[in-house]
Design a protein around this nucleic acid. Sequence first.
RNA 1: GCGCCCGUAGCUCAGUGGAUAGAGCUCCCGCCUUCUAAGCGGGAGGUCGUUGGUUCGAAUCCAACCGGGCGUACCA
Length: 592
Amino acid sequence: MIKEKLAEILRQALVEACENGKMGPLTKADAESGTIAIVIEKPKSAEHGDFACGMALKMATLVKTSPLRIAETLAEYIGKSKAVESGAIAKITVAAPGFINFTLGTAWLTEVISDVHRQTTAYGRSTTGAGKKVLVEYVSANPTGELHIGHGRNAVFGSCLSNLMKFGGYHVDQEFYINDYGEQILHLGRCAWALYQRLLGKEVEYPAEGYPEEFLRDFVQKVVDAHGDKYLQSGEQGPSVVGDLVKDLIIENQKALLQNLGIKFDDWYSERSLHASGKVADVLKEFDKHGFTYEKDGAYWLKAQELGDERDRVLRKSTGATTYLANDAAYHLEKYRRGYDLVINIWGADHHGQVPGLKGAVRALGQDPSKLEVVLTQMVNLSRDGQTVKMSKRAGTVIMLSEVVEEVGVDATRYYLAESSPQNTINFDLDLAKKTSRENPAFYIQYAHARCCAILRRAMEPVVNAETGKTDQPPFSQTQWQEFLQEYQAGGEVFTALFDSDSTIAGHQKALIARLELFPEEVEEALKTRLPGRLARYAYDLANDLQKFYEVSRVITDQLSVSKARLGLIFATKQVLSNALGIIGVSAPERM
RNA sequence: GCGCCCGUAGCUCAGUGGAUAGAGCUCCCGCCUUCUAAGCGGGAGGUCGUUGGUUCGAAUCCAACCGGGCGUACCA
């Protein structure tokens, strides 16, 4: 990355300056120790060059000289570096109050385009993850109802984060935890059993506060269609038998919807299996062994307060049933034992109160709580016609995830849910998400990708003229294109034509290249902050740069060297758009 | 009450220690004989919730306060 190269040059300049006693009391050792941070940034305004460094400002107190003087001294030493001699850096300026500004020459810029051509789908990948094993658990919705937009957010975020981390060199497993145990599942059984009997002509009462009948009826009907009245005589077993069949159908339903959204889990982990295998019972013993439990009021408690929670928590109720915390602790112990280096949970923010309890439990079990990361996603408000759609089941205004996907499509749904940082509440505008114009970023980015494809087609595929019916031959043959690709990968000369263009065009081309160069860094930053949404915004900016360039300049001209260079740039842009869209899981169409 | 999250243009949001705080939408004005106008350019629009502190420098860090959301179970 160019930033790293510049930082290295600055470091070298600093070392030399110190060596020659030009940095006050600072010695060569100080300069080499790395205690002085060298941060390269992109200036907001183009008149400050392509890159800038404000290190002189921070050094002023150490060196006991004005920042401007320090910057000038450093600039002087940089001027002697190879990068300047070779033309990689075209200009170095010093600006008040002490910024060092760099303007790049052509060498590093053309290198960026070749890099994309050489690496294609791997451009931007990093080795940060170094093959570390990560488990990302998300959605984990109860198998008792429909997925709503909040689940959708959680699902899309989890999927994007997983994609990102794979791109960043991690080995990622994605998991859905099925809450198929406990009171709510028994309740589902009672509701399903009542409906089952009703559908077969028996008059029974529907349980109070039952799950919505209109939602369950279709699933129960399927059970009737498949098994008829086979379970009618099941007696006491009825609720659990029919309930399980319905539960499985609901899970299948959730699975299908998530798959439609481009999400595929490596494992669907059953909570019930934890009980069946005795792992929940084991975890209680484990807590006991570490001395973090006590009995009170007939219940079995975890000393959670000692472990960082605000109060102690019950592990086993006086009724003998284990609590959610105990089950979850067993599940997480299981995750740790499976050998993950990192365990990431994506939870709705309404569960944030449970984080200290779970972390405490992990610690009590002798595991490292720093390996457990919980990402909390805030809620999603849906709006239509400028009005918030109130999520009221009673008023019948509740809109489910399936309806949103059906209405605005997979790509727009994913884009809008991916773009925002998890800690922000999302206002999902249904009207906006459906628009096919610049207002809708998802569309805008895809349009830019399709436009690149259109140009490339034009360059090398015959076009049938609609009016004359004649076939127009393209300027370049497939064979020539293959030769171009070779040249692009080799780099250097082939792209210099880009910088011979007039200043407006050259400026737009340079901006586009600079954006391509930024991609690996954006990936790195997104990985570090666990914010895949950055890449959604990056893709938008890249699309914008492409459109600006497209507007001022033709790609295919009557000059071979120019056409060739620009086609290479367009191809690289298309590739990076596609890589970025791939991480957020939005398709990159060839035509629109 | 306590805990977590949020507060930046009329709206939706970027920006988390640096130069004149940025985009899109909305409103106004321009741009299609030529690779996709599903596009591009220009204009208008701001006490960065408030007050204090740290710093050469604060939207960004700290403290208090104000406003909004969520949570605060022997539910899951």
